[in-house]
């Protein structure tokens, strides 16, 4: 179990690429197979872009997880941007305040096993998402 701890600051679109690449690397080290590595990278890409688009800057951290005989990975995306007024609305397919596809948040939620949004208007947003290695593949 790698206790690898990484964080990637998000300030420009280049950082989105490095965040998902670092995330994929750690996922591989944690033992995720390629399908799930891709799933994790896609989810990271979505929330990283949201940071850049809505909060301008922020940070993404990831870390391997061990809980009993389960192993996995947690991704935390944090920004001090404008926050999300109505989280449950933002989590609906197609909802966007920027004319986007509105699939970033709900899509990332579908990709991951656990997904939590804590957001306060004017304060910022923290998204914590986890993926566990599927049993039977260990």
């Amino acid at each position: 179990m790698p206790d690898n701890n990484s964080s990637v600051p998000i300030r420009s679109d280049v950082d989105i690429v490095s965040a998902r690449q670092k995330g994929r690397e750690l996922a591989a080290e944690c033992g995720f197979e390629i399908g799930d590595q891709t799933v994790i990278a896609a989810a990271i890409s979505e929330i990283a872009r949201n940071i850049l688009m809505y909060a301008k800057r922020g940070e993404i951290r990831f870390r391997g997880l061990a809980d009993g005989d389960r192993q996995g990975m947690v991704v935390v995306a944090e920004d001090q941007g404008p926050g999300i007024r109505d989280v449950s609305l933002a989590l609906q397919d197609g909802f966007s305040t920027s004319g986007g596809l509105g699939l970033g948040l709900p899509g990332a939620k579908r990709l991951m096993d656990e997904f939590e949004v804590v957001s306060e208007v004017g304060r910022g947003t923290t998204i914590t998402m986890k993926k566990w290695i599927r049993r039977g593949h260990a």
Partner: peptide, 9 residues
Amino acid sequence: AFAMVQLGL
């Protein structure tokens, strides 16, 4: 492709 369809893309 698998990740895309799960995202809804």
